[in-house]
């Protein structure tokens, strides 16, 4: 599953530069968490369009991930990109004070959507295209908030598994302390992705690669030596989260319907 980092970097920097330009943007904006995906995305973006054209938004909730915030600030300074820190606690707390919720998922989704809302506001203010940072592992198992962290203008990271993002991070020279951090969605203090998903990204990516890239059925994947319970669990996660990877279905009535048979390319006229 090792990638050709030089080629991937070339393809992804071209992608960021060309797709942003075609959409009429000279600049890009990224929500930075201090985690690996957003950091790698920032490194790629700086290579693509230069640090002067990248803006970082760091959006902490209370003191849930102080280390992440500090690392995100360090990365911005290291890359020489402008950034702003916006505490999302007041608006999130204002909502939950009227509509209390204890479940971490509800609170986490709200935070992710608050961040999305700020990113889109800044995108319009700065005339900057939002770079999405969801990787292939997350996209495939649906580990993301719809209209939250899954929302973006373009996504350079979505065809790279988490373990491949890690490999690319080393190639791009991301600081070691970031590489050794446990991935976290910052849903509550001390939360880690791998605890929540139930297994490591190494295990997850191996299963996904067999099912998706090699197009094996779960039964065929199990025969290659992968753990049956985990393979079935991952296959089910993929199936159940398909809705997060699609535009919502539109009820078809006429001869020609948006989303069904009104078929124009995303880059129409560009």
């Amino acid at each position: 599953m090792k990638i050709n980092c030089q080629l991937v970097t070339r393809a992804l920097t071209n992608f960021i530069k060309e797709e942003s330009y075609k959409a009429g943007f000279e600049r890009n904006i990224i929500g930075l968490s201090g985690g690996l995906d957003s950091t790698v995305c920032a490194y790629l973006a700086v290579r693509a369009v230069g640090p002067q054209n990248i803006f970082g938004l760091i959006m902490p909730f209370k003191d849930y991930d102080q280390e992440g915030v500090q690392l995100a600030e360090e990365i911005c300074c290291l890359l020489g990109i402008n950034f702003e820190k916006i505490d999302i606690s007041p608006q999130v707390e204002a909502y939950f004070s009227g509509h209390p919720a204890e479940q971490p998922v509800l609170r986490g989704n709200k935070m992710a959507r608050e961040r999305m809302s700020i990113l889109y506001d800044y995108s319009a203010r700065l005339k900057a295209m939002i770079l999405g940072t969801s990787n292939k592992s997350e996209l495939l198992i649906g580990y993301g908030t719809i209209h939250g962290d899954l929302a973006c203008g373009i996504n350079p990271m979505g065809d790279l598994y988490k373990t491949q993002v890690r490999q690319l991070a080393r190639y791009l020279g991301v600081p070691e302390k970031l590489l050794s951090r446990k991935p976290t969605a910052g849903l509550w203090p001390g939360q880690t992705d791998e605890d929540e998903i139930g297994f490591s990204y190494e295990e997850l990516d191996k299963i996904l690669f067999k099912l998706v890239d090699e197009r094996l059925t779960p039964d065929e994947a199990i025969k290659t030596g992968l753990e049956e319970k985990k393979v079935r669990q991952v296959a089910e996660l993929i199936r159940k989260s398909e809705y997060k990877r699609k535009m919502p279905p539109i009820a078809k009535l006429s001869e020609r319907t948006v989303g069904h048979d009104f078929l124009y390319p995303y880059d129409w006229g560009k």
Binding site: K2, I3, N4, C5, L7, A11
Partner: peptide, 13 residues
Amino acid sequence: PGRGVLNEESQGF
């Protein structure tokens, strides 16, 4: 279209 980035030796897809 270019597809496949797993060959570490290759200059292209």
